[in-house]
Computed example of a mutant assay.
Amino acid sequence: MIPNRRYCVLKNLKLVKYTEAWAYQRSLVDKRINNPNLNDVLVLLEHPPVYTLGTGSTVDFLKFDPQVSEFEVHRIERGGEVTYHCPNQLVGYPILNLRYYQQDLHWYLRQLEAVIINTVANYGLKAYRIPDLTGVWLEEKKIAAIGIKVRRWITMHGFSLNVCPDLTGFQRIVPCGIVDRPVGSLAEFVPHITLDRVRVDIAKAFAEVFQVKLIEEISSDTGKK
């Protein structure tokens, strides 16, 4: 046990349908609103191909008609514009009670960026922020997107890091509404990188940045937590 550190349950899931993970997040948030003493949670998973739009995002950044599209599209309650999720992209959903950290959303966003930056540093790479934008870049390519929602200081949604995905799906959108900066992946800079390796590194970076003690719980069932 690490003295004075808050516990955070690490749930390593595999490929989870977006709507199932979305409902799961809401259930975790509801439980912590009802009982603020529950441990925090970090969910790590992948999604099948899906597009999501933030609350105030515009469909102008879609290069297809969502009303007649074959692609799965959801408008959700996070901030930010449209993004794309797919296999081999690592998605993290921290369910944290910010009353135990800092009740400051800008601070929280910068902490999530720090998690990604510290993770990428394990591979000898220097990722970075861009002023006035949210996310993480590596050699002019955006490798991680961040979008959050907070209810009564309980967080949901989170970050996505392109580890070794097929980036084709990003060609159908203007990712995060940024027209002049391409999307990239870690695999472009670290050949043979694997999602399993990055899972370990990102969990370690998360624990260090947020100063929590992770308790790992591995399961493939999002409906019985």
Rank of each mutant, 00 (worst) to 15 (best):
L96G: 02
R78P: 00
P175V: 06
V190W: 07
N97E: 01
G56R: 15
F71G: 07
S160K: 03
D180T: 07
V179A: 11
Y93I: 06
E81Y: 07
F206A: 07
K149V: 01
H47S: 10
C8I: 03
I33D: 11
L44H: 05
R199K: 05
V198M: 05
L96E: 09
V82D: 01
C164L: 12
F61Q: 14
S57F: 06
T194A: 06
D180G: 12
R5D: 02
N162M: 15
I154N: 00
I202P: 01
Y51G: 01
G80S: 03
A121Y: 15
V16R: 05
K31W: 13
S69R: 12
N39L: 08
I76H: 03
Y93T: 03
I116V: 13
L15P: 03
N4G: 13
I215Q: 11
T168I: 12
R129G: 12
V50A: 09
L186G: 11
F61R: 11
E139Q: 14
L186M: 09
M1E: 08
V82L: 14
Y7L: 11
Q211S: 14
K141P: 09
V190A: 07
V212G: 00
I218V: 14
V73G: 13
K225A: 13
E70I: 11
L167H: 00
V212Y: 00
L109M: 06
P49W: 00
P165Y: 08
K149C: 06
L96A: 02
V50R: 08
Q103F: 09
L214P: 00
N37M: 13
I218C: 06
L15Y: 11
G92C: 03
A121E: 08
M1G: 11
F71P: 10
G54R: 00
L28Y: 01
Y128D: 11
T119M: 09
V68D: 14
D132Y: 13
L42P: 00
H74E: 07
L96I: 02
V41T: 12
L53H: 11
K126C: 13
R110Q: 07
Q102D: 10
H47M: 06
R152D: 09
E216A: 07
Y51Q: 01
V29M: 10
D30H: 15
L133F: 14
N4K: 12
Y51I: 11
G124F: 07
L161F: 09
Y108I: 01
I143W: 09
Q89K: 05
H192Y: 10
K126L: 10
Y51T: 01
L62M: 13
F71N: 12
L109Q: 02
L161M: 05
Q171R: 14
P66T: 07
A23H: 08
T55N: 12
F64N: 04
G79H: 04
K225L: 12
T83W: 03
Q171T: 15
P175A: 03
S160T: 10
V50L: 02
C176R: 01
D40G: 01
N4D: 06
M1H: 15
D132M: 10
E217Q: 11
V209E: 13
I178C: 07
G158A: 04
V115P: 00
